[in-house]
Simulated scan of single mutants.
Amino acid sequence: MNALPRFAPGQTLLLDADDTLWENNIYFERAIASFISYLNHHSYTHEEVRLVLNEVERETVRERGYGLASFRHSLVTCFERLSTEPISAEKHERIVSFSQAISEHEIELLPGVAEVLPVLASRHRLILMTKGNEVEQAEKLSRSGLAHHFTSVEIPREKNPDAYCAVCQKYELRPHKTWMIGNSPKSDINPALAAGLHAVFIQHPHTWVLEHEVVDVVQNGQYLLELAAFTELEDRF
């Protein structure tokens, strides 16, 4: 890692938000743990219930996209599939409360973000690129106090190679000077590399399981940096 160069000012840095700039998935994990305990299934282990929920979430994302409403739908659907009794109004309300608690959390910036992001903004062009529910993501950005560091904000439904190519075309970005920075191999790293961009993988210990993938091999001329913390960006950019 030490042999890598420090990249010159004037790069374009596309930055993910959830679990790159601020904590996000830990709140969903807590809600899921509460849900599984409440379900208290007599035949399925907690791990088996989680596998069912993962599959339900995959279905929900395809049908409804991301966001708290989709997460609530997944919890209710999972409960209906696994419960031996019909879901009552009281149970429905309790399940909804697990997801509602997520929206009540303050935005908790990850270590070093508040200090390093303005430094990066003084040297490079920063564009926030985070998938999800547009209203929810914009609201989180507003509450984070970080919005003024970004020249633009993109909230696509999915972050796939086409989405990255579209952003490059929209802002006339040159791939050899454009980087995607994030914690998700599935949404941040692999599709950006497939679109011809460079990437910076900042691992997060609680990345959503549906975002796990083996990181692709870079092509000639591409860079893939793997950093342990957001603070390390200051030494590379």
Score class of each variant (00 low, 15 high):
residue 96 V to T: 11
residue 96 V to S: 06
residue 59 E to A: 09
residue 69 A to N: 13
residue 71 F to S: 00
residue 88 S to R: 09
residue 91 K to Y: 07
residue 57 E to D: 09
residue 52 V to P: 04
residue 72 R to P: 08
residue 95 I to D: 05
residue 70 S to G: 15
residue 71 F to Q: 01
residue 72 R to D: 10
residue 80 E to P: 05
residue 98 F to R: 07
residue 111 P to G: 05
residue 68 L to D: 02
residue 88 S to I: 05
residue 73 H to V: 04
residue 71 F to L: 15
residue 78 C to T: 15
residue 108 E to D: 07
residue 111 P to E: 06
residue 111 P to A: 06
residue 77 T to K: 13
residue 105 H to S: 03
residue 111 P to L: 00
residue 100 Q to K: 12
residue 93 E to S: 15
residue 72 R to M: 10
residue 75 L to E: 08
residue 95 I to V: 14
residue 54 N to K: 13
residue 77 T to F: 01
residue 91 K to W: 10
residue 54 N to L: 14
residue 105 H to V: 06
residue 97 S to Q: 03
residue 89 A to R: 10
residue 88 S to M: 07
residue 80 E to H: 08
residue 84 T to L: 11
residue 55 E to F: 09
residue 51 L to R: 15
residue 84 T to N: 11
residue 61 V to M: 11
residue 93 E to H: 13
residue 87 I to A: 08
residue 104 E to A: 15
residue 79 F to Q: 01
residue 93 E to P: 04
residue 106 E to Y: 01
residue 84 T to I: 00
residue 85 E to F: 09
residue 51 L to H: 15
residue 84 T to P: 05
residue 111 P to D: 00
residue 97 S to P: 09
residue 106 E to T: 10
residue 74 S to D: 00
residue 99 S to A: 15
residue 55 E to Q: 15
residue 82 L to C: 01
residue 53 L to H: 14
residue 64 R to S: 13
residue 107 I to G: 00
residue 73 H to M: 00
residue 74 S to C: 03
residue 100 Q to S: 13
residue 110 L to A: 02
residue 55 E to T: 11
residue 98 F to S: 06
residue 81 R to C: 05
residue 104 E to N: 11
residue 88 S to F: 12
residue 68 L to E: 07
residue 62 R to F: 11
residue 62 R to K: 13
residue 69 A to V: 12
residue 85 E to P: 07
